[in-house]
């Protein structure tokens, strides 16, 4: 039976960000944006997660650890590119140790770094559309 999404439990991996995306993710957990009240949370282990947020252009040193975290998250799961670097449109795409972002993300949250309001809106919209259409989101 196809599962629909009611909440997002997110594991975060920094793959070469400037720390701006991390600070805005932290802001999302604060009282002004309060992502938990929307059914979204950042969790401590990939085994507790159903989604992965990636920041940064994917440095070569982080590429394998990133894959490993993704493999550890149980299916169904979604991959979220947070910020221009992870999407593949940032300024570090062509640096030699950068893999140029994610090739296979399900959700893109643009910005350098993304505004927390934008991030919250896009995540909530994604959840709503997937709840209504009863789409599967198995990766």
């Amino acid at each position: 039976m196809a599962k629909t999404i009611r909440s997002l439990q997110i594991r975060h991996v920094d793959a070469g960000s400037c720390n701006g995306c991390e600070q805005e993710l932290t802001a999302l957990t604060g009282r002004d944006y309060d992502i938990q009240s929307h059914g979204i949370d950042i969790v401590a282990s990939p085994r507790h997660a159903d989604s992965l947020i990636v920041t940064g252009p994917v440095t070569d040193t982080m590429a394998l650890p990133l894959d490993r975290v993704w493999e550890t998250i149980p299916r169904p799961k979604v991959k979220i590119a947070f910020g221009n670097c992870a999407i593949g449109t940032g300024v570090f795409q062509r640096a030699y140790a950068s893999h140029g972002g994610l090739a296979d993300s399900d959700i893109e949250i643009p910005g350098c770094p993304p505004h927390p309001e934008t991030a919250l809106r896009l995540l909530c919209e994604w959840m709503t559309s997937h709840r209504r259409s009863h789409h599967t989101y198995i990766s």
Partner: peptide, 23 residues
């Protein structure tokens, strides 16, 4: 450390002056 090494110093090389600030 250096898990986040992107190669910024090499990226800046050969850039014209107007291309440096955004990096």
């Amino acid at each position: 450390l250096f898990q986040n090494h992107r190669g910024v110093e090499a990226l800046l090389e050969d850039k014209t002056i107007d291309k440096v600030a955004p990096i």
